[in-house]
Computed example of a mutant assay.
Amino acid sequence: MKLNLQILLFLLTILAGCSSSSALYEKNELRREGNATFKERVQIRHAKGFLITYHKNYKLLQIISPFEKQADTATYLLVPRGNARPKGYPESQVIEIPVRSLVAMSSMHIGLIGFLEAEDVLTGLGNVQYVSSQRVLDRIKAGKIKEVGKDQGLNEELLLTMQPDLVMATGTPVSKMDRFNGLKAAKIPILVNSEWVETTPLGRAEWVKLMGALLNKEDEVNRRFDKIEKEYNRLAAVGTNAATKTSVITGMHSRDAWFVPNGNSYVCRFLKDAGASYYWEKTKAMGSLPLNFETVYPVALDADFWLNVSISNVKSKQELQAKDSRYADFKAFKTGKVYGYHLRANDQGANDYWESGAVNPQDVLADLIKILHPELLPDHELIYYKQLK
């Protein structure tokens, strides 16, 4: 009996030693990996176009159907600078993180960067004309941001000289991504950003979490987005519970078509959450529905409000009527309830609605509620929308 007790104590001592060695090994491994342990992680609740999963020494980013109607998925490996490429995923591009220099091919990406006040990483733009952000404009003026061109005018030689950590492109059904083949061959990663495909305002805005993952700012982006999400949901409860639903039409006739938001579009969701009645809200498709003037006309005659009139085409009701005299027949035109999102547009054609507005949907929603149901938000002053006089 005494011998058996001694053997048992001996075995327990060995097991305890193994456990201590294992814990010490894991602790050393975590220390060796450093930031690769990724203590802070983003969780996607609204966006459908991308996924981020966290692994021991890399983040796996998947852009789902980056070109809208194609069913493929683009995969990227986000690897801490200096770490070896993870095994597997031989076709995936590697992006070293945190990204220190970024070239954005669309000014819409400026909103994602500005959300985290990370304008200092922006070193190039496809076109520097359409910029609203003062911080970015200051960097352009200081020569810290270069214009790299786009499509057939892409300055590949300049980009190769710049050697950015990442080029962020826009994925559309007509995108010709082969124009970036030379950059890929030079090991400059090209990330396809398709936030415009999202069907809800919060889904579009949640692409800031992708930027957070690229910059290793998960904790910050989570905190900031949570505030936006909470405020948006609060306002949506106000708008959807409005006593009456005011009828609206949006956009205007251009190039032989009048594009109205489909029922599954983020614009339609904005209208619904703002307490609007929208004629095409039950069309189950994403994006816009092209219609002829004659189809929209009878709906527009009785609509209470006319929203999202393009300021690039007109700057007043008089100019609007000059485009087509039939506009003057609309109820909203007669009552002066015509609005565009051009309050923050500048003379160069840039519009902050497409920058900060894309990542601050709570402000856009507040504007819409103020317009449609002013009694619900009596103290709110319009941020992006402006009435056409």
Rank of each mutant, 00 (worst) to 15 (best):
A276D: 04
L122C: 07
N346K: 01
Q93M: 01
L24T: 01
K27W: 10
L78N: 14
E91G: 02
R32H: 10
F67D: 09
V299H: 03
G203L: 11
V136P: 02
P378A: 15
S356A: 06
H55W: 07
P86I: 09
I228H: 00
I369P: 06
R85V: 13
E157Q: 02
E119S: 11
K245F: 01
A300F: 10
S65F: 07
N292D: 14
A242Q: 00
T170F: 15
L11C: 15
G349N: 09
Y327T: 14
D72R: 07
E381D: 07
P173A: 11
D367V: 12
T13Q: 06
E91W: 01
P66E: 02
D329S: 13
E198C: 05
R179F: 10
R139I: 05
V314E: 06
M252P: 01
S312M: 03
K317T: 07
K146H: 13
N308D: 14
R255M: 13
T75V: 11
A36Q: 03
E220F: 01
L289S: 10
L61A: 00
H380V: 03
Q70D: 06
M252T: 02
I188G: 08
A237H: 12
L159F: 07
K209N: 04
F305V: 10
R45C: 11
P98K: 09
R204S: 03
A257K: 15
F333G: 09
K69W: 14
C268G: 10
R135D: 13
R139P: 01
L372Q: 11
H55V: 03
Q134N: 08
R32N: 06
A366I: 06
I371D: 12
E40T: 01
V260T: 00
N35G: 15
A276N: 08
N241T: 08
D138M: 00
N35V: 15
V197E: 06
A142G: 04
G349M: 10
E281I: 14
G251C: 04
K323S: 08
I371N: 13
N193P: 02
V128W: 01
S312C: 00
K27T: 11
G251S: 05
Y89A: 04
A84F: 10
N4W: 11
A237F: 08
V208E: 05
A186M: 03
T37W: 08
I228N: 02
V296N: 05
E156H: 02
